[in-house]
Design a binder for these strands. Sequence first.
DNA 1: GGAAACTTAAACAATTCTATTTAACCACCC
DNA 2: GGGTGGTTAAATAGAATTGTTTAAGTTTCC
Lengths: 134, 134
Amino acid sequence: MKDGLLTARQKEVLRHRRQGLTQQQIADIIGTSKANVCTIEKSALENVRRARETLQFMFTLDARFLCEIPAGADLLAVPERVFREASSRGVKVRYDTIGLINRLRESLPEHLQARFVKADIQVYLNDDGEVYFE
Amino acid sequence: MKDGLLTARQKEVLRHRRQGLTQQQIADIIGTSKANVCTIEKSALENVRRARETLQFMFTLDARFLCEIPAGADLLAVPERVFREASSRGVKVRYDTIGLINRLRESLPEHLQARFVKADIQVYLNDDGEVYFE
DNA sequence: GGAAACTTAAACAATTCTATTTAACCACCC
DNA sequence: GGGTGGTTAAATAGAATTGTTTAAGTTTCC
């Protein structure tokens, strides 16, 4: 019955960090090297990242495949396509054009280049109009 | 560079489960025993629980308990309540009604069903107006 | 009562994670 | 150049997690 993902050591470092201490100062307090503090902090943040991604996955369980945006598509064509597909399924997307593009930029920054889609994107939609990109 | 907390096996089970399959059916599909499916599902959900607790920790590094939303509440009643409690503490929430609901949907997708709250929700608030749901 | 769905416990091998050390490295700033 | 703050790589021992099986328990529904 463990509580979270973070070990006591990792929480300790994150707490001290939040207080504004340097890695060296923390190293002195908890009795180890600054290199070790760096490593502990890094893996702690990695754990936080994984926690976020895990909850994101849980969300996609509720979502169903909507459509695929092919590589090479114009970025502005994405919302159009999504709105059309969604309304054909009787669902109202909860974002406007700008909102959708922002959401896409946040979800898959590496799939985009300027105004174009670099790699295929799968779009998932919720009954509530929430959208997820993969 | 692992993605989330869940293994492929665990995701597989959760997906099939969400589709309404029984553990025995899943066991047949993925080629193992139903007891094993049970174990995998259990540890998957345990991982989700830990993911949530981890993010809560990150937030509570500087947030305080605000209020509890009881199961059965209308989703639209949540922002109302949060705004009232927050202003009674002299803090301005950094989200509007829609923003708050989106945030809630992202934080606890499985606590919600359509427009209703399925399970009790704890609300935490930051001095900066940031909000966290548990 | 009996069948189906589900949970639990114990045990095990394989894998992964964690904390550590040491030694080297980058980027500033004075 | 030297100091401070931060990162990285390689190696290692110990701890934790994962998927599995087997066997014995529930709970639930007809």
